[in-house]
Simulated scan of single mutants.
Amino acid sequence: MPILCKKHRYELLRFLSYRVSYSETAQDLFQETFIRYAGYDGKTSVENPRAFIFRIAANLATDYLRGRLRRSEAEQQEDSIPAESEILGLPEFPC
């Protein structure tokens, strides 16, 4: 596996950086890709290891972006929820 990692490092990091737009996140996903690859149980043989690691990386990038979108939507919803004092029409007091 170290040979596979070294052989595709640049190409996979570039792919991930393009997908997630953050180099630090791309590096984290790169590491997670090989952790997942190492943990593969091997129930079926991997005929094309390069394609397999790129599929793992693509899935991780998609999961990351979905999580980021969910967090963004949740923050927007929090911002749109009025404070209790606004609902009750009471003046707001600092705590």
Rank of each mutant, 00 (worst) to 15 (best):
M1V: 15
I3A: 11
K7M: 14
Y10T: 10
L12H: 07
L12P: 00
R14A: 01
F15H: 05
L16I: 13
L16E: 05
L16W: 02
S17R: 09
Y18E: 10
Y18R: 14
R19I: 04
R19T: 01
V20R: 02
V20T: 03
V20P: 01
S21F: 03
S21V: 08
E24M: 04
T25D: 09
E32C: 00
T33L: 06
T33G: 10
Y37S: 02
Y37C: 15
Y37W: 04
G39H: 12
Y40R: 11
G42T: 10
T44H: 13
T44Y: 07
S45M: 09
V46A: 08
V46G: 06
E47H: 07
E47L: 06
E47D: 07
N48S: 14
R50G: 08
A51M: 04
I53V: 14
A58P: 02
L60Y: 00
D63Y: 08
Y64R: 06
L65H: 01
R66G: 03
R66T: 04
R66M: 06
R71S: 07
R71Q: 08
E73S: 05
E73Q: 14
E75M: 12
Q76Y: 05
Q76F: 07
Q76H: 06
Q77C: 03
E78A: 13
D79L: 11
S80L: 07
I81M: 14
S85Q: 06
S85F: 12
E86Y: 08
E86M: 10
I87W: 14
I87Q: 12
I87K: 13
I87P: 04
G89M: 03
L90A: 09
L90P: 01
L90N: 07
E92P: 00
P94Q: 13
